[in-house]
């Protein structure tokens, strides 16, 4: 087998791959859309009151009008998961959005201006990069304590370095290109160049890392609430439901399986969309 045949195959496969991915990407997009609908209208979609207790139907397997059974206090699992989408997803979304705004701005500014601040931010990012972020969140939130929005702030701070690094390295390529010089020559202000000229060119990276940040924060939130940190135990987030369900796995397995599957499916869908975005970007890069 010669290398020509091989590279032809690889090229064919790459094109194949590009045509194939959108189907999967569409499915993932639909999954994320469904999750978003639950975030907005989960409480309204819930077939029953998620906090209505019924001691006679404690930890019951599916049936009796409860599609996924009931939890220890006889509350409807499906309703709790639907209404729990909000506390499970809003925090991660805020983390990812915050990363996007702050991280992209700092990353692009660092690449454009350079200098001591850029070096310092980069060194700091390198350091945080080498630390187990989730463990730090567990320790800080566990020892210092904190509610939902403090959890958001801690996760935001811990995932910011990734965003800064990625946006900085993407912007680094752009700021050396002639169009940036040209813009500077005709007297366009630095921030205008950054936001109107550099940003559109690194947008694929920004969007892809937004999704990856979201996945990291979603898993982080779920892990923290599984351990009873971050989300108040009374609120029906997926992580807390998972923790409740584990001890009742023989009575009503769905109480723990359903939230586990929800977390895995949501995270995988967002990862796949982000990955697809990255691949698209890499492909566009080789075409140039």
């Amino acid at each position: 087998m010669t290398s020509d045949v091989r590279s032809d195959q690889a090229e064919g496969a790459a094109i194949d791959h590009l045509q194939r991915v959108p189907v999967v990407a569409v499915i993932c997009g639909l999954v994320l859309l469904a999750v978003l609908v639950c975030v907005v209208a989960g409480g309204w979609l819930a077939p029953q009151d998620p906090s209505a207790q019924n001691p006679l139907l404690s930890a019951m397997a599916p049936g009796h009008g409860h599609l996924l059974g009931t939890d220890e206090l006889g509350r409807d699992v499906l309703s709790r998961l639907l209404s729990g989408a909000r506390s499970s997803v809003v925090g991660p979304l805020v983390v990812a959005a915050g990363c996007l705004l702050i991280g992209a701005t700092l990353g692009m500014a660092g690449a454009y201006f350079g200098g001591v601040v850029d070096t310092a931010v980069n060194r700091l990012a390198d350091m945080v990069y080498a630390l187990p972020a989730l463990l730090i969140a567990i320790v800080v939130l566990g020892v210092v304590g904190g509610g939902y929005w403090i959890t958001v702030a801690v996760l935001l701070l811990l995932s910011l370095p990734y965003e800064i690094r990625l946006c900085r390295s993407a912007a680094m390529v752009e700021v050396r290109l002639p169009y940036v010089d040209a813009a500077r020559t005709i007297g366009i202000s630095a921030w205008r160049i950054i936001f109107r000229h550099v940003l559109p060119n690194i947008l694929p990276t920004v969007v892809a890392t937004f999704l990856l940040d979201f996945v990291g924060a979603l898993v982080g939130f779920a892990a923290l609430s599984y351990l009873g940190l971050g989300v108040p135990p009374s609120s029906p987030s997926w992580g807390t439901t998972l923790a409740e369900g584990q001890s009742l796995i023989t009575q009503n397995p769905w109480l723990s399986i359903a939230p586990a599957v929800l977390i895995i499916v949501t995270a995988s869908s967002a990862t796949l969309l982000g990955d697809w975005g990255h691949e698209l970007l890499a492909h566009a890069g080789t075409q140039r």
Partner: peptide, 9 residues
């Protein structure tokens, strides 16, 4: 995308 604790369950 599958966190270890969810997979563990």
């Amino acid at each position: 995308g599958a966190p270890g604790f969810a997979l563990g369950i």
